[in-house]
Simulated assay, not measured.
Amino acid sequence: MSEKIEKTEAEWRAQLSAEQYRVLREHGTEPAFSGAYFDTKAPGRYRCAACGAELFDAEHKFDSGTGWPSFFAPLNESAVETDTDTSYGMRRTEVHCARCHSHLGHVFPDGPRPTGLRYCINSVSLELEPKA
Rank of each mutant, 00 (worst) to 15 (best):
A58G: 12
C48R: 01
A49G: 06
F62V: 08
A50F: 01
F38T: 03
A49D: 04
Y37A: 00
L55H: 01
Y37V: 01
G35T: 04
A36G: 05
A32N: 07
A58E: 03
R45L: 15
R47S: 00
P31C: 12
C48G: 10
L55Y: 01
K61T: 02
R47A: 01
E54I: 14
E30W: 14
P31A: 11
G52Q: 08
E59M: 05
H60T: 15
T40Y: 02
T29D: 02
A50K: 03
P43I: 13
A53L: 13
T40R: 04
G52V: 07
F62C: 06
T29N: 05
C48N: 03
C51W: 08
R45P: 04
Y37N: 00
A49R: 12
A36L: 09
A53V: 11
A50D: 00
E59D: 14
A42C: 05
P43K: 15
A42T: 15
K41Q: 12
G44D: 09
L55F: 04
K61D: 02
H27I: 10
R47I: 02
T29I: 07
A49T: 06
E54N: 09
F38I: 06
P43E: 15
H27Q: 14
A42I: 07
E30P: 08
A50G: 15
C48L: 09
K41I: 08
Y46F: 04
F56M: 09
G35H: 01
E30A: 04
T29Q: 05
A42H: 06
G28A: 11
K41E: 11
A42W: 03
F56Q: 04
A58V: 03
A32R: 05
Y37H: 02
Y46R: 00
A36S: 13
H27F: 11
E59V: 14
A36I: 02
P43Y: 10
A53I: 13
A58D: 02
A42N: 10
A50C: 10
D57T: 01
G52K: 08
L55G: 00
D57M: 02
R47H: 12
A42V: 11
A58L: 03
Y46D: 00
A53M: 13
E59H: 09
Y37W: 13
G28W: 13
D57W: 00
D57P: 02
R47Q: 08
E30T: 12
K61M: 05
G35N: 06
A42P: 03
K41M: 05
A36W: 03
A49S: 14
